[in-house]
Design a protein around this nucleic acid. Structure first.
Lengths: 191, 191
DNA sequence: CCTACCGATCGGTAGG
DNA sequence: CCTACCGATCGGTAGG
């Protein structure tokens, strides 16, 4: 999935558009207009509208995978590993807010490659769950429901951009606040 | 917004459909087929496709408002009030999972009543923020960013149904786990 | 509730 | 990259 320069441009504009109107609410004519070309001309660069969604969903999924492997292969204390995962994942999310949003909310409109995507996602969640389980076990923390906890973590991280007005906080401020809420909750560090 | 019996039936089937395919991915023909009637016959009961989305979004928004007023007018200790709000809000969410999902993710496809909806939502968030601020102040808890915290709470509650396989846990088990994670985070009650 | 039908728009192709 | 065009489908109306 190496994109040519023009395809990159189409991808970027499509991300803007899909974020604003949703995948099903965006027409190829909308997209073409934003690119100052005619709809038919798009098809010199794309196979289909769906292909663009594939670029978005599989591209960011790969980034999440790469980042997870990096965390897994780093040899540090378990608690540091948890923090490293949170920071790395958040960093990818915050650098790709719109893409993450589309990945989270529009993936079901994939067609041809939908089964492949679901499988990829399942594998990813299982790998994260394994990481979390290892960390909890090494720390002797109680982990009642690994699957629930993993989904809670991923969902919280993937939607964290929601809680901020864009660009009023720095990335490190955002990361700190989210890490704190996720680890200690509303009351964990008070009272 | 009192619905007739047939409209209630249309609403219920539409919720199923919109949840599965999204509002923009669902056609009035899909909906009519599920109801075993022809598409044109729908218009004896609805003004437009958008009206159904209005029923969904404004209906559940009203439930959230009512529940908040109830919490606000209950005279109990601040910390109990926080728990009461979490429980009541979660109860509405868990009894209306699909509707909450559509409310959270499809509201932007409202057209005529979009400004009204945005205003309603803003008011609701401000009222929740006010409640949270009062509780924190009464407890002498530190509240760095009320808006961030409010969004974190609402977003976590509104998406909590995501973390469960449907129907394998009881509502009270789910509520307990979510309240715990929200209040104390991953580590707040460990170590 | 139906049949019949509307204009608009959809994703996409042919051919240059 | 364009013009010209395709069949399919869209939300919705007229009239019964």
């Amino acid at each position: 999935m190496e994109l040519k320069e023009k395809q990159r441009k189409i991808l970027d504009v499509a991300v803007d558009l899909f974020k604003e109107k949703g995948y099903m609410g965006s027409s190829v004519r909308d997209l073409a207009t934003k690119l100052n070309i005619k709809a038919a001309s798009l098809y010199a660069h794309i196979r289909s509208k769906e292909e663009i969604l594939e670029w978005i969903c599989f591209g960011i999924a790969q980034e999440f995978f790469d980042e997870l492997q990096e965390v897994k292969s780093t040899d540090i204390a378990p608690k540091d590993k948890l923090n490293l995962f949170l920071d790395k994942h958040l960093s990818v999310v915050l650098q790709n807010r719109d893409v993450t949003h589309i990945y989270s909310n529009e993936w079901r409109h994939l067609d041809e490659r939908l089964p492949e995507f679901i499988e990829l996602r399942k594998n990813y969640q299982e790998e994260v769950e394994q990481l979390i389980s290892e960390i909890y076990h090494a720390q002797n923390w109680e982990l009642k429901s690994p699957t629930f906890t993993t989904r809670f973590i991923l969902h919280t991280l993937n939607n964290s951009y929601f809680w901020f007005k864009r660009n009023t906080e720095s990335t490190s401020e955002i990361t700190d606040e989210i890490r704190e809420k996720l680890l200690y909750g509303l009351l964990g560090n008070q009272k």
